[in-house]
Amino acid sequence: NITNLCPFDEVFNATRFASVYAWNRKRISNCVADYSVLYNLAPFFTFKCYGVSPTKLNDLCFTNVYADSFVIRGDEVRQIAPGQTGNIADYNYKLPDDFTGCVIAWNSNKLDSKVSGNYNYLYRLFRKSNLKPFERDISTEIYQAGNKPCNGVAGFNCYFPLRSYSFRPTYGVGHQPYRVVVLSFELLHAPATVCGPKKST
């Protein structure tokens, strides 16, 4: 009989979030998941669920729940959905087409922007091929755009693959930082360890 609440607040209220290319994953298990708490945590810009209804979450049980978190800019949030393409979905964080879970995003301009520009958040701009779903690539190998090998040196047709967002508070919403948490629900042929409040007794 599990009584402890799932530590969603640790994920959502973390002081620092990860850069999207090096997104963070927390496995959540053996706890009571009260998803209604999430609705009250922040004024969400996005709370979209796929393959599951957000209002039914509190009635369900899962084997595992994974919470992935990272920062992107406002106009990239739409890429965090099944079947999307674009720089983020292709080279940084890719959801599977049959994704079961929820994408939660909110504006973090007050936390993640600086007047002089916050350069701490990076994204991958160049990659030889698209990522597979939930693949994480943290390599910093020089990207070869031409025929000549780069031998690890940046220059003509040889690019450092990561680029930094420079978040400034005066930017338009599309270029402001957004914190994203992706909850993916895993149903294996194994005992369910993460249940809503109704199912945990």
Rank of each mutant, 00 (worst) to 15 (best):
I2E: 14
C6W: 05
E10W: 08
V11G: 05
A14H: 08
A14M: 08
T15I: 09
T15D: 12
R16V: 15
F17H: 03
F17G: 04
Y21K: 01
R25H: 07
S29V: 09
C31P: 06
D34G: 10
Y35N: 09
V37N: 12
L38W: 10
F44G: 15
T46N: 12
F47C: 14
K48A: 08
G51R: 13
T63N: 13
N64Y: 14
V65D: 01
Y66G: 03
F70A: 01
F70L: 03
V71Q: 01
G74W: 03
Q79D: 04
I80Q: 01
I80K: 01
P82H: 02
P82W: 03
T85Y: 09
G86K: 02
N87E: 07
N92L: 01
K94W: 00
K94R: 08
K94T: 00
F99R: 02
C102D: 02
V103K: 02
I104A: 09
W106G: 05
N107A: 05
K110Y: 08
L111T: 03
K114P: 03
K114V: 09
G117E: 03
G117T: 03
Y119K: 12
N120C: 07
Y121N: 05
R124T: 00
S129C: 09
S129R: 13
N130L: 12
N130F: 09
N130S: 15
L131Q: 02
L131F: 04
P133M: 04
F134I: 04
R136H: 08
T140F: 09
T140M: 13
E141Y: 08
I142Y: 07
Q144F: 03
A145L: 04
F156G: 05
F156H: 09
C158A: 01
F160D: 11
L162H: 03
Y165L: 01
Y165G: 00
Y165W: 02
S166N: 06
F167E: 00
P169W: 04
Y171W: 02
G172K: 00
G174E: 06
H175E: 01
V180T: 07
L183D: 00
L188M: 14
H189S: 15
H189G: 14
T193G: 13
V194T: 11
G196Y: 10
P197W: 15
P197K: 15
K198A: 14
S200K: 14
